[in-house]
Design a protein around this nucleic acid. Structure first.
Length: 224
DNA sequence: ACATGATCATGC
DNA sequence: GCATGATCATGT
């Protein structure tokens, strides 16, 4: 999927574009982009997110930079129920498993990634055919002081465990608003990590994910 | 019913 | 292998 518009030149232009997509369904968006709608997302889990990128003029591709680099804005689609509740957690970034000594929240990739996010809710209950899922009203967000505190607390807890060589003890239950879970093509993938005694080990790659309670709060706080 | 752990596609 | 985009599907 290639971008079909130029890069937005301002936050407002980006937001305007997103607002203009609200209320449309994925079939209409696919039509605008000249692509076909998959029957399900089993083999194209990122399809809707990539479709929105293309329609809004994101050019970053798979580069480790914000979707809208010059605006420092990250784009996230968020599947929601008819009640407006998030249906999935939200991937943030890979969790560093080596050389973590001295890393601070202020310099973390998580903080940077979440500093400014354009959330685009999609009514995406699994019973709704992909083509009929509807784009919701967009939300341009930066964490409040309270939200950042919560994120920082979880980040510090989780990173401390990693720094102590406890990566294999971390489960998705750790963290109040953010968790660490596997992020890999399959469970046999391995990457460099650090063990209990500081020795090098191989571990399943992990990622930071925002829990539903957190993204729910973001949506609620924007409710009119 | 739901979250956790597992997985899928793609580019370089 | 690691980054991007996430949702699937099983266990509890």
């Amino acid at each position: 999927m290639q971008p079909i518009v130029n890069e937005p030149q301002s936050e407002q232009e980006l937001l305007d574009r997103a607002v203009n997509l609200a209320g449309l369904n994925l079939a209409q968006l696919a039509d605008m982009a000249g692509v076909s709608v998959p029957c399900n997302l089993q083999k194209e889990k990122g399809w809707a997110g990539q479709l929105l990128e293309c329609l809004l003029g994101a050019y970053a591709g798979s580069k480790p930079v914000p979707d809208f680099e010059h605006l420092n804005i990250e784009l996230k689609t968020l599947p929601i129920s008819r009640q407006g509740s998030p249906l999935e957690t939200t991937y943030v970034c890979v969790a560093p498993l080596t050389n973590v000594a001295g890393l601070t929240w202020q310099d973390s990739v998580v903080k940077k990634k979440l500093s400014r996010v354009l959330w685009i809710p999609i009514l995406a209950e699994r019973t709704i055919p992909v083509a009929e899922r509807i784009i919701g009203y967009p939300l341009l967000w930066s964490p409040s002081a309270q939200e950042e505190q919560a994120l920082q607390a979880d980040w510090e807890e989780l990173m401390e465990m990693i720094a102590l060589g406890q990566i294999e003890q971390i489960t998705a239950k750790h963290g109040e608003v953010m968790q660490i879970r596997p992020k890999a093509a399959n469970a046999s993938i391995r990457t460099a990590a650090v063990g209990h005694h500081g020795q090098p080990i191989e571990a399943l790659p992990r990622g930071f994910y925002l829990k539903k309670n957190f993204t729910q709060t973001i949506l609620r706080n924007s409710t009119v």
